[in-house]
C-alpha cells in the first residue's frame, strides 16, 4: 500500500507541474519568462495616459478601454462558451441607460451608480437572452443583434427615457485622470479575472459546454444554467462599459445602441487573436486609435479602415496575439529551462 502510494505521488508530480505552474518558482530566468509579458502589459497600460500628448488622446484611451471591455466579453462568450454574440451595443445601451437613470433621476453618485447599473443591467440582459440560450452559432448572434436595434426604436417611438434627446445632466468623473485610470484598471481587472476564471473547474465546465453540450448534459449538469451564468458575466462586463461611458459623455441617448459597439469588438478580436483574451484588448488598442488617426481622410476613413481589416484577416488571420505567443514560446528554447 505504501509503495503504491509512493508510486502514485511520483507519477502525479507531473500533473502538479502541468496544472499548477509550480515550475515558475525554479529560478529567476523562468520567473522572468513568465511574468515579463504580463508586466509589460500592466505597466504599459498604466503608463498610457501619461504618454498621451493631450486631452483629446487621453479621451481616446478611455474609449479604447470601453471597447476593450466589450471585446473581452465577446471573446469570452464566443471562444469559451460558444455563443457568438453581437450584443455589444445591447450591453452598452442597457448598462448606460441604467446608470443614467440611477444618476440623473435618483441622484446616486457615479461611484455607486456604475456598479448598480452593472448588476441590474446584467440581470436584465441575461433575462432577455435566456429564451435564446438553446440557440447556437449564428442564430444566437442574430437575436443579440436584434435587441439593440429594437430597443433603440422602442425608445425613439414611445419617447420614454428622454426619447431621441436622451438623458442629460449626468455627473462626470471628478477629473480626467480618475476617468482614465478607472477604465484602465477595470480592463486589467477583468482581463486577468477572466483568464483565471476559464482555468478554474467551473470555467472548465463552461468551456466543455462549447466543446460538447451533450456530454455536459450526460454528466448531470444543466447546460442552460452554465450558459446563463456565462452570459451574466459577459453582459455584466458590457454593461459596466456602458455605465462608464455615460459618465464620460455625461449623456445617455439612443446612440448607445449604435452598432459600432457590436462590430468593433469583433474586429478587434479577429486582429488580436480570439481565445487569448489579451488579444482583443490589444486589438482595441490598435483599432480605435487608427480609426481616430484616419479621421483626417474624411469619408475615405472607412475605406482605409476596411482595407486594413482585410489585410489583417488575409495575412494574419490567426491574430496578433496567437502569432506572438507562438513566437514567444519558440524563444523559450533559447533559454535553458
Amino acid at each position: 500500500m505504501d509503495t503504491q502510494q509512493q508510486r502514485k505521488e511520483r507519477l502525479d508530480r507531473g500533473i502538479k507541474v502541468r496544472t499548477d505552474g509550480l515550475y515558475a518558482l525554479m529560478g529567476w530566468q523562468e520567473l522572468g519568462y513568465l511574468t515579463l509579458p504580463r508586466l509589460i502589459l500592466i505597466v504599459g497600460m498604466l503608463a498610457l495616459p501619461l504618454l498621451m500628448p493631450g486631452m483629446y488622446w487621453q479621451r481616446v484611451i478611455t474609449i479604447v478601454c470601453i471597447y476593450a471591455l466589450l471585446a473581452l466579453s465577446f471573446d469570452f462568450l464566443a471562444h469559451f462558451v460558444g455563443l457568438v454574440s453581437l450584443g455589444g451595443a445591447f450591453f452598452i445601451g442597457v448598462g448606460g441607460y441604467f446608470s443614467a437613470i440611477f444618476n440623473a433621476s435618483f441622484g446616486i453618485p457615479p461611484l455607486f451608480s456604475i456598479p448598480m447599473a452593472t448588476v441590474s443591467g446584467a440581470i436584465v440582459c441575461t433575462l432577455l437572452l435566456i429564451p435564446c440560450l438553446p440557440l447556437r452559432g449564428v442564430y444566437f448572434a442574430i437575436v443579440t443583434l436584434m435587441y439593440p436595434l429594437a430597443l433603440a426604436r422602442v425608445i425613439e417611438a414611445t419617447d420614454i427615457l428622454g426619447g431621441t434627446d436622451g438623458i442629460m445632466g449626468i455627473d462626470s468623473f471628478s477629473n480626467s485622470w480618475v476617468e482614465q485610470y478607472v477604465a484602465i484598471v477595470l480592463v486589467l481587472l477583468f482581463l486577468f479575472g477572466l483568464r483565471r476564471l476559464v482555468n478554474t473547474d467551473i470555467g472548465l465546465v463552461v468551456r466543455a459546454v462549447k466543446d460538447n453540450d451533450q456530454a455536459v448534459r450526460a454528466s448531470g449538469m444543466s447546460v442552460n444554467f452554465y450558459k446563463a451564468g456565462a452570459v451574466f458575466i459577459a453582459s455584466g462586463i458590457g454593461c459596466l462599459g456602458g455605465a462608464c461611458l455615460v459618465h464620460i459623455y455625461m449623456w445617455a441617448g439612443i446612440s448607445l445602441f449604435a452598432l459600432d459597439f457590436s462590430i468593433l469588438p469583433i474586429a478587434a478580436t479577429v486582429i488580436g487573436g480570439s481565445g487569448t483574451l489579451v488579444g482583443p484588448v490589444l486589438g482595441c488598442l490598435i483599432l480605435v486609435p487608427i480609426s481616430e488617426l484616419l479621421r483626417d481622410f474624411g469619408t475615405l476613413r472607412i475605406v482605409f479602415y476596411a482595407i486594413l481589416l482585410v489585410c489583417f484577416v488575409v495575412f494574419r488571420s490567426e491574430g496578433l496575439m496567437v502569432y506572438g505567443e507562438r513566437k514567444y514560446h519558440q524563444f523559450e528554447r533559447w533559454v535553458k529551462v
Binding site: I202, A208, S219, G220, M221
Partner: peptide, 8 residues
C-alpha cells in the same frame, strides 16, 4: 474534471 464537478 467536468463530471467530477457535477452536483451528483
Amino acid at each position: 474534471v467536468i463530471p467530477l464537478f457535477s452536483p451528483r
